[in-house]
């Protein structure tokens, strides 16, 4: 059931909610691009890409502040209730997760710099493949979460949430990386950086799931966060 933000008797309220939605999507796209570029930077030693990512980090931060400001204004002016209130609360939560996603992009970029400092090699390239593999999965999930956020579609949000996280892939990669370390202890430093990147990708997947949970709340009013814990 797609969510509906428009239809107010006061049309300006429609415009304000649409603007808020667009600003959130703009931030989501920027963050996605940051993560994608950060992962690309492992495949080639491209200092320009890394520099661009670090420079655009401030754009993510200023978007966060701009959206927070829009939310404050809408709350003050319109006194929203029910689905409007849930939408605004949801966007506010989404922005926090997006900002953290941006931080993950920056973190990955820093690891990319360290990995390249380690120099090329067959083993290194095998280990980098782990990032490519898990990175593709994380990006696919995040892309879908942003799409769910764009159309506020509760059915697609629930479908995304029903899919398992990246735990399995992460653990499989960890096993393969361990074998590289056992083969040659000199791979240790390199492998640790790769593992930290994989951990970042796991967190990206978790944030993407959070986005889908917020959409469920915004559209239906059901708070399904921590539902696994509730059942225990």
């Amino acid at each position: 059931m797609p969510g509906r933000l428009e239809g107010h008797t006061i049309r300006r309220f429609d415009g304000e909610l649409e603007q808020l939605h667009n600003e959130v999507l703009e931030m989501a796209e920027l963050v996605f691009e940051q993560i994608r570029k950060a992962l690309e930077s492992f495949q080639q030693d491209n200092q320009q890409i890394i520099q661009a990512i670090l420079e655009r980090e401030s754009q993510v931060d200023s978007l966060e502040k701009r959206i927070d400001n829009t939310i404050t204004e809408v709350l003050a002016k319109r006194g929203p209730v029910a689905r409007d209130l849930r939408a605004i609360m949801g966007f506010s939560k989404v922005v926090t997760d997006l900002e953290r996603l941006g931080d993950e992009a920056t973190r990955i970029t820093h690891f990319s710099t360290r990995v390249h400092d380690n120099g090329p090699g067959r083993k290194n390239s095998d280990m980098l493949r782990e990032i490519e593999l898990v990175g593709d999965l994380a990006c696919t999930v995040l892309r879908e979460a942003i799409e769910v956020l764009r159309i506020l579609d509760i059915t697609r949000a629930r479908k995304l949430l029903s899919q398992a996280g990246l735990d399995e892939e992460f653990n499989a990669s960890l096993r393969r990386l361990t074998s590289f370390i056992l083969e040659d202890a000199l791979n240790m430093k390199y492998a640790i950086n790769i593992i930290l990147v994989l951990k970042s990708l796991e967190r990206i997947d978790a944030h993407a799931h959070n986005l889908a949970e917020y959409v469920v709340y915004m559209v239906s009013g059901s708070d399904i966060r921590h539902s696994d814990n509730d059942q225990t």
């Binding site: 029910a82 689905r83 009013g221």
Partner: peptide, 13 residues
């Protein structure tokens, strides 16, 4: 916060 009926939701929003 989450009215059940569409008419309630439409009115209060």
């Amino acid at each position: 916060t989450h009215p059940i009926h569409q008419l309630t939701s439409d009115y209060i929003t």
